[in-house]
Amino acid sequence: MNTLLEVRDLCKTYHKQSGWFSQRSVIALQNISFTLAEGKTLAIVGETGSGKSTLAKLLVGIEKPDSGDILLAGQPVKISHYRQYNHVIRFIFQDAAKSLNPHQKIGQMLDDVLRFSTVLDAQQRKLKIRQTLKQLGLLDEHSEYYPHMFSGGQLQRVALARALILDPKLLILDEALTALDPSLRAQIVNLLLELQQKSGLAYLLITNHLRLVRHIADDLLVLHQGTALDYGNTAHVFSNAEHDYSRKLINSAIA
């Protein structure tokens, strides 16, 4: 199995102004390392403030690490090259609705994504949009819809369409499944599993939803106050977590 993403000793500290003259530092991430192979799923779990969002920001390229490396298929990733690897890594956030422009039709939005990042001509883009909508169980007509015309679950599919239309290798899901109702969640999970099997897509799942993690993640990393506690095969961590904190987290979900 080829390694797709490798993260080595990632560190990040924030300096917050507290009062006029003093600064407070918060260590958001401390020596985080992990690898993710093609076609695999890694779940990162932890409470708010554990560093999950910081990690996502570093991977997205919104923020720079203080030290450490992010390697994509063996190549170091630089923020200045963000646009170059923006095909390969795509993101979906919890609030799909908020990240869509309410005044733009869905078809137009997808077309923009393609124009910005590929060299396809108008005809090819049209075909690609149609294929992607179909893949996600949406209809051709939906191209003509504005975001407010979709239900919450359909919007989540639209967000997936936007992420998948560039045929990425890695999809980062930041709590993107949490607020869905169970039957919709099951549909999306099945879709993700199918895509993974067909095209070797890898997922980085940032979430609190441990029950789901157990079902879909190959590996699991528990973050707590910026450090990695347990890291390994999901089933193994679920049954043999070394740290009290991880055990507590796991028990709260399955007890």
Binding site: A186, V189, L193, E194, D218, T234
Partner: peptide, 8 residues
Amino acid sequence: PKTPLYAL
């Protein structure tokens, strides 16, 4: 693990 969930 990783098998499809039941969905309408």
